[in-house]
């Protein structure tokens, strides 16, 4: 069973439908007890990081996510959900994140170092470039995936970067450390590659359930 965290900021429908296509059982919940029992957790998210963190704190779900991560069961943050995994964001004058991954989140400047302006948000299909091996990318090629975001993650920890995409800067596209994963793009909207990544995540949850 995959738990989808319902804290009022995500496109839960698309993610849940993608799991249905994969025939993976899931529950959508805002209940810490129910979520802790899941074999894997998905943290979706669309919108502003400050609003998201406030909601996570108010509902107590920030602690649930941190406790869940400590169990070793797999956790996947999608888009804003991925950004929330980092230590902090410069959005809205600085917001502390969940701190599960080292690094911070900053806004695309919208102008290159050479002074050429470009469009923000980074919206559309961009190509993955693999950096580190990870089970989340099993049987995935350096394919195109669908992004919609104005902020991106910056991390000094080279082992956390699994794949990136080029958009003015090297945008961390897939990040992860041990059982904690994040995708900046929307796997549920990224055709076959995205579906494979979601499948890999759910397999990790299943396999871990098998050994525990």
């Amino acid at each position: 069973m995959i738990g989808i965290i319902d804290y009022g900021m995500g496109n839960l429908f698309s993610v849940s439908k993608a799991l249905e296509r994969l025939e993976v059982p899931y529950l959508i919940s805002d209940e810490p007890v129910a979520l802790m029992e899941a074999d894997g957790l998905i943290l979706p998210g669309v919108g502003a990081i400050k609003d998201a963190m406030e909601l996570l704190h108010r509902t107590g779900l920030s602690n649930t996510i941190i406790d869940f991560a400590a169990t070793g069961k797999p956790l996947l943050g999608i888009c804003l959900g991925m950004q929330l995994l980092f230590e902090e964001s410069e959005e809205n004058g600085g917001t502390r994140g969940l701190g599960l991954l080292p690094g911070y989140v900053k806004k695309f400047p919208g102008v290159t170092a050479e002074g050429i302006s470009y469009k923000v948000p980074h919206m559309g299909w961009n190509q993955l470039k693999f950096i580190n091996e990870s089970p989340i990318l099993k049987k995935v090629d350096e394919d195109f995936v669908y992004f919609v975001h104005s902020y991106y993650a910056v991390t000094e920890a080279a082992d956390v970067l699994i794949a990136s995409s080029q958009y003015d800067v090297d945008v961390p596209a897939v990040v992860g450390k041990e059982n904690i994963f994040g995708t900046q793009f929307h796997p549920e909207k990224s055709s076959k590659a995205g579906m494979r990544i979601l499948l890999n995540f759910t397999k990790m949850a299943e396999e871990r359930m098998g050994v525990s």
Binding site: S14, K17, A18, E20, R21, K189, S190, K192, M195
Partner: peptide, 8 residues
């Protein structure tokens, strides 16, 4: 459509 489609 949303149930079936994995593109925006």
């Amino acid at each position: 459509v949303a149930s079936e489609l994995a593109i925006p």
